[in-house]
Design a protein around this nucleic acid. Structure first.
Lengths: 223, 223
DNA sequence: GCAAATATGATAGTAATACTATTATATTTG
DNA sequence: CAAATATAATAGTATTACTATCATATTTGC
């Protein structure tokens, strides 16, 4: 995976950024340290000014890449889901047993990223933590509908649709493939959050993974 | 339900507010119009200054009830979940069939509030929309752990635990009662959100309710 | 019925935020 | 080497999320 990915560029919708951060050294540093800084201090405390100071650049320069702090988060979540989607497609394409395929897909969206695959300037472990903690803030806004029209969430929706397709293939009569797929994708993040902060309302811990829970849930439901 | 509730006070942990808003006319107006204003302009645009203007009171007076905008949201979510918990306990207590009981409980946490039960100054329909759109912002903060220790989320956790208990009663061998209960509670809100904004990744609509989806999911999973 | 306590209102002030605008200085490219 | 482009520096703005202070109502206890 490491070598393969090193020659790939994860494709994020172009209208999310003003200037593609992958196109320059500064852009990459913005993304690299943006992730680390959000992971350290949280998205609410994160500002372009602080990021500028950290990378010894200027707030105004960052604004030439991202029109707002919010769009930066949308960029990061899109990048993350595109990366997960890549792994999902790559890891499931050679599996012929449809059930095994779905199991693998669930495992990929529900697992925590254990180590940096080091193919780029992006620390996926830190990014994964950010997604668990704040990804829902990228769509919980008054402008969701406008942003959705702009295609800001299309990668996420495509990923959920892929899982929905797998479910339909296994059982074409099952009535709720999309709801189940979106419940898995979003629920897995939630279980990770609960495991870290509200242990009493989850069974997930070091021994029981969200993947395990959702695999059992999914298979028993659609059969 | 209407008459019963009119004599009841929904109990919210005391340390969430500075002064109990139920204890005065101004306090009730803060809550009443706070809900309406957040519903209208969204939580991010909502400020105590705007609320003060709306109720012809003063920003500084509102700060005497709630120490911050964030705590106000925590108050509203606690009130909401306490209200849901009340309905759940009330509606299920006379059901002897454990499976029917669980079905009823799921229906209550997953349904949308259809009309104001009019027992107080609180518009539950608007509050329900707020919960769907922003409730996760109440815990997705850097201070979750500190706030959790203070008991800010105990009502929500107690509600999830009740559902978890019902699941355990039906099948004591099922391994993930708490994860399932938290997935239902949080997933139902998410399905409502998707239905309103990302229709392509949900099967829920006017004909198919989140309740229906989660009842089928739950019963097939735990049996 | 009045003083004391309490609740509310009005005003001002503050540091930080999330930007925009402008101008200057590097760096790259044709 | 000039022109184009990228980055940096500085300043400025409206708003936010408060805190602090003082004044004025309103309620309550005696």
């Amino acid at each position: 995976m490491i070598n393969l990915l090193s020659n790939l560029k994860i494709a994020v919708p172009e209208n999310i950024f003003i200037k593609d951060p992958e196109s320059s050294d500064l852009g990459k540093r913005i993304v690299e340290h943006g992730i680390l800084l959000i992971d350290e201090i949280g998205f609410d405390s994160f500002t372009f000014k602080k990021l500028g100071a950290r990378i010894e650049s200027n707030e105004s320069s960052i604004y030439r890449y991202f029109e707002s702090k919010h769009k930066f988060l949308v960029y990061l979540t899109s990048w993350y889901w595109a990366w997960i989607e890549y792994q999902l497609v790559f890891s499931t394409q050679n599996i012929t047993d449809e059930e095994e395929k779905l199991k693998k897909a669930i495992e990929i969206v529900a697992r925590i990223v254990k180590q940096d695959s080091a193919f780029s300037h992006i620390n996926e472990v830190a990014l994964n933590r950010i997604i668990i903690n704040v990804s829902s803030k990228s769509y919980l806004t008054t402008d969701v509908d406008a942003e959705n029209k702009e295609g800001h969430f299309k990668i996420y929706k495509r990923l959920v649709s892929r899982i929905s397709q797998m479910i339909q293939t296994i059982n074409p009569k099952y009535k709720y493939p999309s709801s189940l797929a979106s419940t898995i994708t979003q629920g897995a993040l939630h279980q990770h959050f609960l495991k870290n902060h509200f242990k009493s309302i989850t069974d997930c811990n070091d021994a029981v993974s969200p993947s395990e829970f959702f695999v059992q849930l999914t298979l028993s439901t659609i059969k």
